[in-house]
Design a protein around this nucleic acid. Structure first.
Lengths: 178, 178
DNA sequence: CAGCCAAGTCAACAGCCGTTGACAAAAAGA
DNA sequence: TCTTTTTGTCAACGGCTGTTGACTTGGCTG
């Protein structure tokens, strides 16, 4: 990897961590560049601006792993959201989704990326769009209730109790019949 | 109502509408004051600053209506989130919650207000904190899936279909047993 | 070594932000 | 009517934002 590609990658990593954690408008390019150990100007050079950097951040963020059926999908989702994420990506994606969905300019980018990947992936397995959407809603609600609201009733990640709660809600979402 | 109290109220109304809709850091005081038809400086005079204005916005935002049992609670929640809100408050409260929960300074204010009112109210009716939290998570997930993510699988508010979906998830949350 | 090109720094810009204090208008009280 | 208090406007401040162009550094090639 060339020198430039390395620092570009560093910028991307820091941008993911900071923008996803605190929201698009709450983190400045100077903060990101400083975390990456380079100057702000490089962001505009490599990504064309803040918007471009954020867009690059969304690349591959909403990919859904290949699964055979709904049961396996539940298992994958549970595993994703119970184990502490090694790269810090998955739960942050959902937070990101919520955090910026209301910001017109940025929200459209997030919605587009989510629609193209995760939503499409879920519908491919689940079939019925309504049940796929409820599955998504359950995941969102549980994630935000634990990570953002710190609801005392929700057990902490990485505990069997939380897995039971999450699994309960996910299965409930799939049992919906119109 | 004195003249001052009136413009104070106008500022509060516009602040609720704008801050809750677009997020704390995405709306400037000049925008709010302009919407209220007064000068920016009055915000600092009447509320002591942006933080104070936002805090005033949270007053009574998370109040839970008195209900007898869980069945009635579901009915109230369904009614709240299926009918288009006349004053635009209820769904926005949840969005607000999500939007600012990640912003350290503002998030704590929101969490504190939510914890004192809504969460306490729910636990009073439901009893088990875990089921109360799942109830909250279901509500959050459904609301954000429809209003923010615009998931195609979720029916629009104000339709029987959405009511059925929401009711399904709420009842599922209450049927959880550890 | 000389020249060149990629990689990064730096300073400056225009613009918006929240906040403040001095001032003008308007209303109320004497 | 004169005075005082309320209510509101205005201009300015320091600070932070994203973006840009000119400049410096460093390593590679001839």
């Amino acid at each position: 990897m060339t020198k430039a590609a390395t620092t570009r990658e560093n910028l991307l990593i820091q941008a993911r961590a900071l923008l996803w954690a605190h929201g698009y408008s709450n983190v400045s390019l100077r903060t990101i560049a400083s975390a990456a150990g380079v100057d702000v100007a490089l962001v505009s050079r490599y990504f064309g601006g803040k918007r471009g950097l954020f867009q690059a951040t969304l690349e591959g963020a909403f990919d859904v792993p290949d699964v055979a059926d709904e049961a396996e999908l539940v298992d994958v989702a549970v595993r994703m959201f119970t184990t502490a994420p090694r790269n810090g990506m998955v739960p942050s994606v959902l937070q990101l989704l919520l955090m910026n969905a209301h910001d017109e300019e940025v929200g459209d980018m997030v919605r587009a990326a989510h629609h193209a990947k995760m939503q499409a992936g879920l519908e491919a397995v689940i079939g019925d769009p309504a049940r796929a959407a409820l599955f998504m809603a359950a995941t969102l609600g549980m994630s935000v209730a634990e990570k953002s609201l710190h609801l005392p009733g929700i057990a902490p990640h990485d505990t069997p109790e939380y897995e039971a709660q999450l699994r309960h809600m996910l299965n409930a979402s799939l049992s919906y019949k119109r």
